[in-house]
Write a protein that binds this DNA or RNA. Structure first.
Lengths: 238, 238
DNA sequence: AAATTAAACTTGTATATACAAGAAAAAATA
DNA sequence: TATTTTTTCTTGTATATACAAGTTTAATTT
C-alpha cells in the first residue's frame, strides 16, 4: 500500500512541508527554508518549489514576504471544513467522531434538487449519504451528500466513518475536488434539524449549500450542511 | 489618472480576462483562448499565462480541464464578500449602497479586542470605521473594521462609501490583502444589531470575524460582520 | 559610536524550452 | 457505415536561467 509512484514532485513537497507544519516541526512565525535551499534538498528548480509554496500559501499554511521568506501561519482549529483542498485540519482528529445516519445508497435525484443538472448527470443517477459529526461528543454538524453515480463501482462498500469522504474518493476512485462554490445562511433550526443536533427548534444554525466539481467531467458532488455554532465555529483561510 | 506603468504582465492578463468575463463577452461554459493563443496575443510565454489562469481559477472565474481548456464558470451573485482577492463581484453594483455609520477615525485598540496584537501594532494604534451595506434598499450587512495605523497618512479623508475599502488601500497606499482567516457563526441578533439591520431581535444572523494580512509587515486589518441572510446570502468560491 | 553605503541574501516576474498526458478531431481500417 | 487508430490540440509538470525588487546583514564612512 505504498504511495503512488508518479506523484508530481511539487505535490510531494506540499505534503512534506504540510506534515512538518502539522507536526509542529515548523511553528507559527518560523521561516521555512528559502526557495533555493528547498531546490537543493529536493534536487529541483525554483518554479517547481514555487508551485508548492504557492499552493501552501493558498491553503493558509504559510504567507510569503518579498525579500524575507515563507512564514508559517496560524495553526488550524475550528471546524475547518471549508478548506477542502488542504486536508481536514479540523479540531483535532481525536475529538471528531463521524456517525453515519444513512449509509451510501443509490437513489434518483430529488425532484426539488436546488442545483441544475445535466442530462448526463440525470441518467447516471446519484449516491446519497447522510452523516452527523460529533465534536467532543456533541452533535455539531449534519451533512447530506449527493454524488453523481459515474465511474464509482462498489463505492457503497467503503467505510466513510473512519476515512474522510474525500480521501476515499481520491484513493479508491482517483476523484479529486477541483473547484467549488458555497452559499451560506444563518437560519432558525427546524424541528428535524434541531432533533438531529440535540438543540432547541428555532435556535440559530449555520446552513450551507455547496457544489463541487471534480477532475472527472460529469462527476459533480453536492452537500447540504447544518452546523451548530454554539460551541464551535466554521473557519477557513484565503 | 492612468494605471500604473509597472503592472506585471500576468496581472494585466488577469484584469483583461476578468473584465471580459464580467462584461459577458465570455459566458458561462465558454472556452477561453488556449494558453498558446494567449501567449501570441500578449507576446509572452506559457508560464506567465499560466500564472494568470491559475489565479483566475482560484478566484472562481474559470475551471481548467486537462486536455480541453479553460472553461468560464458561474457568473457571480450573492454577497460575494468572501472572495476578497477577486473584486467585489457581489450582487451587482447598482443595487449596493454603502452607508458610513462611523467615519474613519483614529482610536486606541479596544481592550477586549479578540485578536492578538504585536507591540508594533499596539504602538501604532488603529483606524476604525463602521459601515452598513444596503442591498436593494434593505440594510443587509453591518461591518466594523479596524486597520493598524501604519503608513496611512490622510487615510481618513477618502470617501469609502463610493470606493471599496480595498481599492482605496491599494490605489492610494499600495496596501494589498495577501492572506486572511475567517470564523463564522450563526447567532441570534442582539438588540443593537437588530436595530441596525431593521430586524427582530433574536433573529438568526450570520456573524463573521476576519483577520487579514497585507503586503506591509505590521499592517493587519480586522473586520467584524453581521449579515441578515433572509433575502440574500453569502457566497464564495474555492 | 552612529549613520550611511554596499553586499548578500530573500521572493517576484519573466523568458525559453521540453516532454507527459488527457481530449477531441481526423484519418485509416474493418 | 461503424469502429479503431492516428494525429493534433489542449493543459500538466519540469528544467534552466535571468533580472528586478524587498529585506537583512556586513562593511564602510562620517
Amino acid at each position: 500500500m505504498a504511495k503512488e509512484p508518479n506523484t508530481p514532485l511539487y505535490k510531494v513537497l506540499i505534503a512534506d512541508l504540510k506534515r512538518q507544519i502539522d507536526d509542529g516541526y515548523y511553528k507559527k512565525g518560523d521561516l521555512l527554508p528559502s526557495e533555493n535551499e528547498l531546490c537543493k534538498s529536493y534536487g529541483t528548480t525554483r518554479p517547481t518549489v514555487r508551485q508548492a509554496l504557492g499552493e501552501l500559501t493558498q491553503m493558509g499554511y504559510i504567507i510569503r514576504q518579498h525579500g524575507k521568506g515563507s512564514i508559517v501561519s496560524e495553526p488550524k482549529n475550528g471546524l475547518g471544513i471549508l478548506s477542502l483542498k488542504g486536508s481536514t485540519a479540523g479540531v483535532g482528529k481525536k475529538n471528531l467522531r463521524t456517525e453515519i445516519l444513512v449509509k451510501t445508497k443509490r437513489i434518483g435525484w430529488p425532484v426539488d434538487f436546488p442545483y441544475e443538472l445535466t442530462d448526463t448527470q440525470r441518467e447516471a443517477g446519484c449516491l446519497y449519504l447522510a452523516r452527523l459529526r460529533h465534536v467532543n461528543g456533541l452533535p455539531t454538524l449534519y451533512e447530506e451528500t449527493y454524488i453523481t453515480d459515474i465511474d464509482l463501482p462498489r463505492f457503497t462498500m467503503h467505510n466513510l466513518a473512519k476515512h474522510s469522504l474525500f480521501e476515499t474518493l481520491k484513493k479508491n476512485h482517483h476523484v479529486e475536488i477541483k473547484e467549488g462554490e458555497q452559499k451560506i445562511w444563518a437560519v432558525a433550526a427546524s424541528k428535524r434539524i434541531a432533533d438531529l443536533l440535540s438543540i432547541r427548534p428555532g435556535k440559530p444554525i449555520l446552513h450551507m449549500k455547496r457544489s463541487m466539481q471534480t477532475n472527472k467531467a460529469n462527476l459533480l458532488m453536492y452537500s447540504f450542511l447544518y452546523c451548530n455554532t454554539e460551541e464551535y465555529f466554521i473557519q477557513d483561510y484565503f
